[in-house]
Amino acid sequence: MTAFALGPKARTAGYRLCGFDAVGSTNSEALTAATGGDAGGIWFAALQQTAGRGRRGRQWSTPHGNLAATLLIIPDADPAAAATLGFVAGVSLNRALGQLLPATDIRIGIDGADGIGHSQGARIALKWPNDVLADGAKLAGILLEAQKLDDGRHAIAIGFGVNAVAAPDGLPYPATSLTELGVARSAQQIFESLSDCWVDVFGLWADGHGIAAVLDYWRQAAAGIGAPVSVNQNGQIVRGIFETIDDAGRLIVRADNDARIAITAGDVHFGATASARS
């Protein structure tokens, strides 16, 4: 039994749900539904993915008991505005985790730079463009995929992967889980909270008209603002200080010569690890 359930706000807003114990990919399920004529507003949630994927076609495995969830929507917004839904997703997931984790398990400060150990609580933060970190280790990821429909609109599959019980093995970067953080929360609990938080933040987004407010919330929860950063753009490394996220959602790096470089995509590393990992 998967026993997934929508939160009360999500039910009231008319969202639907399809739950699985295991599935190939919740994003694939969503995009297949879109091709079949689904009007959107439906969640696909699973305790395990056997063919999940991350950014740039990377594999994203989901050990059983973790959360894999995808929301299919067909927004009334142009593609450029729809691309900012990743920030809606990040803020929604950050809020959901904040509701589920005791306050003593969350601490504030630039990721990896405040000098407080795990005994003081984990630092939960958003990493540009689409990860959630706990003390610099990946706790969750978000993947957006778009599909053009016959009527010219775009269906958007917004995928969430949360390490509830275990982090995948063999990753090229640190990863953690809620269990490793000493927090016992099931995938079903995370999903129910996420589905409600999505309603609030998506309403704020307002078909792209409210993206400025969403980005403000994203910055407040961001990892690494004001700290050294390096960005790998297909082998080209950009280094400097992570200054902010601009109004289009681009990462702004201030280089040593004070030039401000706008980054639209790339793999980001912070602080002392920036040089070593890039």
Results as ranks from 00 to 15, higher is better:
F4K: 13
A51Q: 11
R277W: 08
P174Q: 07
R95T: 01
K148V: 13
G240C: 10
L194A: 10
V23A: 12
I241Q: 15
A46G: 09
D196S: 06
L178A: 09
A122H: 11
G271P: 08
N94S: 14
W198Y: 15
L215T: 06
R56L: 15
H154S: 08
Y173C: 03
I116F: 04
R53Q: 12
L143I: 10
A166H: 01
I124P: 11
T179P: 00
P8F: 03
H154D: 06
R239M: 15
A137L: 02
D150S: 14
A137F: 05
G90T: 10
S195D: 01
H154K: 02
Q49A: 01
I225P: 03
I190M: 03
F270Y: 15
R260I: 03
Q189H: 08
P102L: 00
L47E: 11
F87D: 02
G90E: 10
P75K: 06
V165S: 09
F202Q: 08
V229Q: 02
A146T: 11
I245S: 04
A262G: 12
L149G: 01
I116H: 14
Q147M: 13
D111E: 14
Q99I: 00
T264A: 15
Q189K: 13
Q220C: 11
L6M: 08
D21G: 12
S193Q: 13
W218N: 14
A45G: 06
L47M: 08
T84F: 00
V201N: 06
F242G: 07
G90S: 15
N163Q: 05
Q120K: 04
A272S: 14
T176D: 02
N257M: 07
L31W: 00
D105H: 15
D267R: 04
H64N: 03
I42E: 06
S278L: 11
Q236A: 12
I252Y: 00
G182F: 07
D247L: 09
L71I: 12
N27A: 00
I252K: 06
V91C: 03
N94L: 10
W60Q: 12
S275K: 13
D21W: 10
P8R: 13
D267S: 13
L204K: 13
W218D: 08
A113T: 05
F160I: 10
I158V: 14
S278N: 15
M1W: 11
G112Q: 05
D78S: 02
V268D: 04
A68P: 07
E145W: 04
G36W: 00
G115V: 05
S230I: 02
G161P: 07
A184G: 05
P228F: 04
N94D: 14
N163Y: 04
G170Y: 01
F191W: 12
T84A: 13
S275A: 15
L215I: 04
D216P: 00
A223V: 04
W60M: 11
E180C: 00
L139Q: 04
G266L: 03
Q147C: 06
A157Q: 05
E145L: 07
Q147K: 15
A10S: 12
D105N: 10
A175V: 02
G235M: 08
Q233F: 01
T2C: 10
N257C: 07
L178F: 07
P79D: 01
G115K: 03
V132T: 11
D151Q: 04
W198Q: 06
A262W: 00
D247T: 05
A222P: 01
T104K: 09
Q120R: 13
F270W: 08
L215G: 08
G208N: 08
D131A: 09
